[in-house]
Amino acid sequence: MNTVDLRSDTVTQPTPAMREAMMAAPLGDDVFGDDPSVNALQEKIAALTGKEAALFMSSGTQSNLCGMMAHCGRGDEYIVGQNAHTYRYEGGGAAVLGSIQPQPLAQDPQGLMNPSDVRAAIKPDDPHFARTRLLCLENTWNGHPMPAAYLDEMAELARGHGLALHLDGARVFNAAVADAGPGGDVVAALRAITGRFDSVSVCFSKGLGAPVGSALCGPRELIERARRWRKMVGGGLRQAGLLAAAASHALDHHVNRLADDHALAQRLAQGLAAIEGLAVRSAQTNIVFVDVANGRGPDLLAHLERQGVLATGLIGLRFVTHLGVDVAGIDRALAAVRGFFDQAPSGQAPRPSGAAVY
Rank of each mutant, 00 (worst) to 15 (best):
T61D: 02
G183T: 04
A94N: 02
A46P: 06
R159T: 00
T10Y: 07
I287R: 13
A130I: 05
D30E: 15
V172T: 03
K206H: 15
A53L: 00
N83Y: 13
E138M: 12
A53F: 00
I193Y: 05
A149F: 00
A283D: 04
I275W: 07
R296E: 14
Q82F: 13
A240H: 12
Q103D: 08
A188L: 04
M232K: 15
Q270Y: 10
K231A: 14
N39F: 05
G218S: 10
P219T: 09
P102L: 04
K51F: 05
L243R: 13
T285G: 06
I315Q: 11
T194C: 06
G184C: 02
N39I: 13
E138I: 06
A349R: 13
V212A: 03
Q307R: 15
D126M: 04
P109C: 07
M113S: 01
D108A: 02
I122W: 10
L208R: 09
S201Y: 03
V38P: 09
L242D: 10
A192G: 14
P145A: 02
P124M: 08
F129V: 09
P352M: 05
N256Q: 15
V357Y: 07
E224F: 04
A188P: 00
S346Q: 13
A178K: 15
A130V: 13
P345I: 01
D168H: 12
D76G: 00
A17K: 12
M68W: 01
R74V: 11
Q110N: 10
L301H: 08
A84R: 03
R88C: 01
Q348T: 15
V357H: 09
R257E: 14
L251S: 07
N2P: 15
L112M: 13
R225P: 01
G93V: 03
D261G: 11
L264K: 12
R119Q: 12
L314T: 14
F173P: 01
R267V: 12
V357A: 12
N174Q: 13
C217N: 03
V96R: 14
Y89N: 14
F173G: 11
M154P: 10
R227N: 06
R225T: 05
L268N: 03
A328C: 03
S59H: 14
L300V: 08
A164E: 07
G91F: 06
G234V: 07
H85W: 03
N142H: 13
A293Y: 06
P26M: 10
P115M: 06
F204V: 04
A176Y: 01
H262R: 07
G91D: 08
A250N: 09
Q270N: 14
V172M: 06
A94H: 09
M146W: 03
R74D: 14
D29V: 11
H249V: 07
G297P: 04
L243I: 11
A170T: 15
G316S: 10
S99T: 00
A47R: 13
C66F: 00
G195L: 07
Q82K: 15
I79T: 12
S58C: 11
P36V: 11
A189Y: 05
F204N: 02
H71I: 00
P350K: 12
N174G: 07
G81K: 06
A130N: 12
V337E: 03
W229R: 10
G162P: 01
V255T: 09
T15Y: 07
A247S: 15
D5T: 08
V327K: 11
G235F: 05
L243D: 11
R196I: 08
S8Y: 06
G207I: 05
A210I: 02
E90R: 10
F340W: 09
